[in-house]
Amino acid sequence: MDEMRGMTPADRAEAEAVERLLGETAAVRDEIRRAAEAVDWQALPALIADRALAAEDGAAGRKAGAPVRLPWPAALRMRPALAGLAAGLIVGAAAMYLALKAPGPRPGRNEAYYASGEFLDRAELEMARRGAVDYLEKSQYVLLDVFGSDEAGPVAPASVRMSQARDLLQKKKYLNGQLERFQMAKAKALCDQIEMLFLELSQIDDELPAAELGRIRGFVEERQLLLKINLVKKELESGV
């Protein structure tokens, strides 16, 4: 009260309000005291100690090799993070199994580059066939070019003829493997004969004399090379 003597009325009212307010805490303290009186404080420490030791014994028992056996779904329910991890592993493993087991493109790969072995074999056979047809066709043009003019001599100059023959010889080297692999024996035999002819032509670097021209023409006619080229080409194109 002495403290309030020098205060303004407003300050005094404020102080009284706070005092009255804090006075209410006394009522709560009374309530707590009444609640505390009903507790057996002598027995409580022993009760808590028993519980603490029992809990410790239980934990020690579990550690000592007496595991609490729970059915695994129950164990997972008790540990949501573990359950989530396990579920993730199971789903991931299943997805990986299905992805690797299923035929077709593998996940993560560019589908544009995927082809089965069978498809690749068919594609290579087709390429070999087209390569052989192309070789025969070009060889046919060269032969017709060389022998197209009867007594007047070849239409193409010697340099062009040599260059064409060398290109075709080069090409034949790559064609050999494919013809052998796919057992295209007829085409290979014909291509071999043409190769020998081009080998000879590529070594003659000046204009063909009439006698030489006649000899080579005889070879072509005797072997019926142009006719054979047409027949084999048709066979290859029809896929027989």
Partner: peptide, 15 residues
Amino acid sequence: GDREAFMTITRLYQR
């Protein structure tokens, strides 16, 4: 693991 010591601490601070 001293039970008595634990009970003493409990007795001191329980209220």
